[in-house]
Amino acid sequence: MAILEMHNIYKSFGSTEVLKGIDLSLNKGEVMTIIGSSGSGKTTLLRCLNFLEIPDSGKIIVGGDVLFDADDPNTQRESEIRKKRLHFGLVFQSFNLFPQYTALKNVTLAKELLMRDNPEFKKHKKAMLAQITEDGKALLKQVGLGDKLDFYPHQLSGGQQQRVAIARALALNPDILCFDEPTSALDPELTGEVLKVIRSLADKKTTMVIVTHEMAFAHDVADVIYFMDNGVIIESGPPCQVIDSPKEERTKQFLQRYRNT
């Protein structure tokens, strides 16, 4: 049963068409990686999924609920979108941690703010906040940063910052965790520690959509790979098919270039 479906997504910026009818679906507990050259629309697709961009047309369905339908303005109200975003977590290429907060506070802040909408909040404030803090600590421990709780982002390496960002995205228990080139801003030697964390999430059956340039990693972690070019999906399927024996000429060319570098 597909937890995520996107139907016929189109998106233009001015006169530039970036997405030209994207269809995809993803099963619960599976990992999708999206590969393709720069400018192929991978990041825009991920941003549409997180409502950072609003598609011009198409539908987004999560767990059977239509979250977004370009033809239905009711699905596009600001307050609605804010709630729907919580189905998704997003890890950015440039981390985007909040510099004035410690690693722990980065992880717990959003949950603390959401908790204020809970009618029980006033009565059990202390216990609820303590629980959020405990959860935050556990998440940081899970990404290997149990000893960095009180460090500020500028005191951490890029790889550590990205792991805090992963913990921050996990804190709200999203149905689908998205990664936008999570290692592209990192030194090669820091890439491994972040990929290891993502790998461990895949082992725990976390549903993920990962946009990446790390071909070996994409092959290794994915249940299904989508190859995008020029705003359309050229080829999709399990890694052994798309990467090891691609059918489309465009996919072969792309992979050829990767093998040569």
């Binding site: 997180n50 409502f51 950072l52 804010r82 709630k83 975003r85 919580l86 998704f88 977590g89 997003l90 950015f92 440039s94 985007n96 941690l97 909040f98 802040l109 959003a110 703010l113 959401l114 921050r168 995205a169 709200l172």
Partner: peptide
């Protein structure tokens, strides 16, 4: 302030 700071808040469901 970079747009990423706003976007990070947005995807975490903040108003």
């Amino acid at each position: 302030i970079s747009r990423g700071q706003y976007e990070a808040g947005q995807v975490l469901g903040m108003t």
